[in-house]
Design a protein around this nucleic acid. Structure first.
Length: 301
DNA sequence: GGCCAGGCTAGCA
DNA sequence: TGCTAGCATGGC
């Protein structure tokens, strides 16, 4: 089945694919030529493969969504809602641009990334695990660990003559032991953080979907007491998992490097400096953060 | 070879 | 409360 979605312009799907392309993953299939994004999404009742393709333009955007014919109506609704979140179809980017344009330094970045929104993680559990793994590691090694986790999960779905790997469920990960992850080159601590988190979710002690209804501050309160989950981790979860629009990971090294470069500063700004500078980006600090991270990708000056 | 990565914890003062 | 070593590996 196919359905056409209409994002709010400007929406540059091809450029949005650059980030997932820069860190290849077996979870996400991208065809750069046709601008196609394919992956499996875990819905409440089943795993659902989906292919998204841009069929419009940046200023007249349309996305063609393709999904299995046997999807029930409620599953279809859930999928559409998930896609709307994942690709931030309804966000008003013009408002973001007007907000950050108070700083003249942003003009070039806005021009270069015009129409770009972050692609959210497909699933809240996957998002937290990805972030925990990503702590203090270079991105390529973090991607390697994610890849090995997916392989260990060994769950797949067939879609259009292809086999798509599926990110393991919390229930699956909860049944693993620390040594199994150590064999994959996880540190002892990281193995504990990931598996313990999965056990909290699988047991129902933490209900990730319920967090969607809570304000940012309450989400910090629920998640930060977990071992291995600090402020930065919840910030990334709120930003890439929940799609909250005003999150600022001010202690993040990448942000600090990007701000230093954008504002031509002699030294790397500290957390307090970042908060000060970023105060005028509210209520769009997540998007500002994302644009700054994007500015660090290679082959951009 | 050393230092730093899109951090966090535990142990110490 | 505030500071720091240690964690695992890869890239520069």
């Amino acid at each position: 089945m196919k359905v056409i979605l209409t994002p709010r312009a400007p929406f540059d799907f091809l450029q949005m694919l650059r980030r997932p392309m820069s860190r290849p993953s077996s979870l996400i299939l991208i065809d750069a030529n046709s601008g196609t994004y394919t992956r499996a999404v875990r819905l409440r009742s089943r795993v659902c493969p989906v292919t998204v393709r841009s069929v419009g333009s940046v200023d007249g955007p349309e996305l063609c969504l393709e999904y299995p014919d046997d999807l029930a109506e409620d599953e279809r609704d859930e999928l559409l809602q998930r896609m709307t979140q994942m690709f931030s179809l309804e966000r008003n980017l013009q408002d973001f641009y007007e907000t950050v344009s108070v700083s003249k330094e942003w003009a070039g970045l806005i021009q270069r990334l015009y129409g770009v929104r972050p692609i959210q993680d497909a699933d809240l559990f996957e998002s937290m695990v990805r972030t925990i793994i990503g702590q203090q590691l270079n991105l390529s090694f973090a991607a390697t660990l994610m890849e090995r986790l997916v392989q260990l999960g060994d769950e797949r779905v067939v879609w259009k003559q292809q086999t798509l790997p599926v990110f393991p469920s919390a229930k699956t990960v909860a049944e693993w032991t620390y040594p199994r992850l150590r064999e994959l080159a996880f540190s002892q601590r990281k193995a504990e953080y990931v598996i313990d988190f999965a056990r909290h979710v699988a047991s129902g002690a933490i209900d990730l979907e319920k967090l969607r209804d809570l304000p940012d501050e309450d989400v910090y309160e629920v998640l930060m007491p977990l071992r291995g989950v600090g402020r930065w981790t919840v910030e990334c979860f709120l930003l890439f998992g929940m799609g909250r629009t005003d999150i600022l990971p001010a202690a993040d090294i990448g942000i600090q490097n990007a701000v230093q470069r954008l504002y031509h500063m002699a030294d790397r700004p500290k957390e307090a400096d970042i908060r000060q500078i970023a105060s005028v980006w509210a209520p769009w600090r997540s998007y500002a953060t994302y644009y700054l991270w994007q500015s660090l990708l290679r082959d951009e000056n």
